[in-house]
């Protein structure tokens, strides 16, 4: 159904080459200091092809994702997937930010509707939702393919070069309206799909099977959790996902044990590896997805261990040419 579109980013090129692709996630917080994000991005080099940079996740105001994505590309040499959500910006602001992203050499955009502003740390903010993810996808597609904005006004100079990602939630129940919605996004011009965190392998495979006919690469989201606190918080506050009770209980048991921090760390790691390594293996074996999107925010040390267990080789560590290409000042 979808024709093979031009790959602008390394991520898209790798997906199109048929390799099992991994992407990571970086979550800048409410700060003016991006050094920890850069360090995390650096430590992910070689393990993942590109990193998502979140845009005000859960509607908590954070440092601009566009700025962070640019800084990460420049300082850490890591290709980014710039997340942009409709909750905070109208079509004018979205257009201008996307043009800015093109100027800064960002090649991947993930279009999101965004969590409702009521769920965030400034619940009385005016929720924008001028567009939704489907319409935003169409808008970016038009910018890339036609060099025009949403209303058909010309963009001067070269057209922006983006590969467009969209989100899907295989946990949705019922799944049919969710699938049909993602199909709308694909029809409106998505290049690839990244899913919300998945825990249930059967459900995920079922989703991928249903989705196969649309021949759009899907990266399945997984979320190794650093501690019981993280898991519980995720379960409670992230809309649309629930952590399986058995897994949550395992984390809880570790938390309640009176052992040293290092031992706890060791146990948490083991739970994650035991749960997610077979998950990744199974996904890879199924051949239904293009790869995995590992959202181990602030928990990057698990990735090497996890990938070793899942028998996924690390790529030769080379600094992306983006580090040079996207720095206008140097």
């Amino acid at each position: 159904m979808t024709k093979l579109r031009k790959a602008f980013s390394n991520l898209m090129k790798k997906i199109q080459s048929g390799k099992f692709v991994l992407t990571g996630e970086l979550e800048p917080v409410k700060t003016t200091d991006l050094s920890s994000v850069i360090a995390e991005a650096k430590s992910l080099r070689g393990y993942v092809t590109a990193c998502n940079v979140t845009d005000n996740p859960s509607s908590y105001a954070a440092v601009a994702s566009l700025v962070s994505a640019h800084v990460v590309q420049k300082e850490a040499g890591m290709e980014t997937i710039y997340q942009i959500r409709c909750a905070d910006r109208n079509r004018i602001a979205l257009t201008s930010d996307l043009l800015g992203a093109a100027v800064l050499g960002i090649k991947n955009v993930l279009t999101l509707t965004g969590d409702h502003t009521l769920l965030g740390d400034m619940p009385n903010a005016k929720p924008v939702f001028d567009l939704d993810a489907t319409l935003l996808t169409g808008m970016v597609r038009r910018m890339v393919d036609e060099g025009k904005d949403l209303n058909g006004n010309d963009i001067e100079g070269p057209r922006p070069q983006f590969n467009i990602g969209v989100a899907a939630n295989p946990n949705a129940d019922p799944i049919e309206p969710e699938i049909l919605k993602v199909v709308r996004k694909v029809e409106n011009g998505a290049d690839f799909v990244q899913t919300q965190v998945c825990y249930d392998i059967d459900k995920t495979i079922e989703f991928l099977k249903m989705f196969r006919m649309f021949s759009v690469p899907v990266l399945v989201g997984i979320f190794p959790m650093r501690s019981y606190g993280v898991a519980a918080e995720f379960d409670k506050f992230v809309p649309g996902v629930k952590v399986p009770k058995e897994l949550l209980d395992k984390f809880k048991q570790v938390k309640q044990q009176s052992i040293s921090k290092a031992e706890k760390r060791e146990k948490y790691d083991r739970i994650n590896i035991k749960f997610f390594a077979p998950f990744i293996k199974e996904l890879k074996k199924s051949g239904l997805c293009a790869g995995c999107h590992i959202m181990s925010v602030h928990y990057v040390e698990i990735i090497p261990k996890l990938l070793a267990e899942a028998k996924i080789k690390k790529a030769a560590q080379k600094i992306s040419p983006l580090a040079v290409a996207s720095s206008p000042s140097s």
Binding site: T113, D132, T134, D173, P239, K242
Partner: peptide, 30 residues
Amino acid sequence: CAKGLMNGPCGGMIDGKCEVGGYVRDCAWF
């Protein structure tokens, strides 16, 4: 729809309920 979306449902729908207000209200798109 809490977000007034023209192309829903959004990813915040669980069991046909809306993320706003703790999954009590029906998701309009559902």
